[in-house]
């Protein structure tokens, strides 16, 4: 294409842009993007990612979590099948770790609030008399900005209280980089909630539009997973949502779902795919 032709097209495109702007009014002043979870983790270098992956594999091995496809999901594309997605595997039964629902104190502090929720359980089990850290302190330890938190920062902040509130060890991991994301998601959370001594209270990153109760409302958001029940279909998990708005905040039981059906796994998987920020601290 000749240079003048490209120039002409550029002028037409610019005029088109301007006309759109004029036709629809001036845009509002620019704002700093605000969110609960960063899309990408700027601290996740190749070295750091490799280190986290090694920690993840070690922990999976320690808890007997195998990375091989398990017959958890019956994604039912065929019209004749109408059963639910996750079969009742009854591997973990009903597991519950009490954590309260703490309101996040700033619109972009779901990470610090979720960490405080998880630490509550560790403090209770450890019998520590030391007060829980404030969300301000936790935001600082995570490295939270107005754009939100990173999952690696969340795991780091949780581990910084090892010794203060017990002997827990969290690792930050993706799920989409495994051959069986649903099985990995289910087993990591189930194993952590079933383990009394060495367990954790996982924090997961969600794309809320993949949870039916949000009715299509889109946001990237951290919640604490404090319960699992796989005794019957559908397999459910309890998520403690610290949302700034009471309209969302609360304790819910949700279907786990799969890549095809809405639920906690699908919401986490979608959030994982969107950026390099890791999917879960467990």
């Amino acid at each position: 294409m000749r240079g003048w032709t490209r120039g002409f097209i550029a002028v037409v495109a610019l005029a088109s842009l301007l006309s759109v702007g004029l036709a629809h009014g001036a845009p509002p002043p620019k704002q700093q993007p605000v969110g609960g979870a960063l899309l990408d983790d700027p601290h996740l270098t190749d070295t750091e990612r490799k280190k986290l992956n090694e920690q993840c594999l070690e922990k999976e091995a320690a808890f007997g979590i195998e990375r091989r496809p398990v017959a958890l999901c019956r994604c039912l594309e065929q019209e004749s099948v109408s059963a639910l997605c996750l079969t009742a595997v009854k591997r973990y039964g009903y597991q519950s770790k009490y954590v309260p629902c703490y309101k996040q104190e700033r619109t972009y502090w779901c990470g610090p609030a979720a960490v405080r929720q998880s630490l509550y359980w560790h403090k209770a089990v450890s019998g520590s008399a030391i007060a829980l850290p404030s969300q301000t302190t936790l935001a600082s330890r995570i490295g939270t900005t107005t754009s939100g938190s990173t999952t690696s920062g969340i795991a780091r902040a949780l581990n910084s209280y090892r010794g203060t509130f017990g002997t827990h060890h969290y690792v930050a991991s993706d799920i989409s980089n495994t051959s069986d994301p649903l099985g990995v998601f289910y087993n990591r959370i189930g194993a952590m909630l079933a383990s009394k001594a060495d367990g954790t209270v996982p924090i997961v990153l969600l794309q809320t539009s993949q949870l039916s109760r949000y009715r299509g409302h889109s946001s990237r958001h951290y919640v604490t997973i404090s319960g699992i029940d796989d005794r019957s279909v559908p397999v459910r998990m309890r998520d403690v949502d610290p949302n700034w708005r009471v309209a969302y905040r609360g304790i819910y039981w949700d279907d786990v779902g799969c890549t095809t059906y809405n639920g906690l796994f699908r919401a986490c998987y979608q959030a994982d795919l969107e950026g390099s920020n890791l999917a879960m601290a467990w």
Partner: peptide, 30 residues
């Protein structure tokens, strides 16, 4: 490529023409 719903487009179902009518710095939730 950032996973943020950042614009509202129109599509003409008859011609397929697409146009951006609104852009947003923040995630469009609704």
């Amino acid at each position: 490529d950032e996973g943020i719903i950042d614009r509202i487009i129109t599509l003409d179902p008859e011609t397929g023409e697409e146009e951006i009518v609104i852009t947003s710095d923040n995630d469009i939730a609704w």
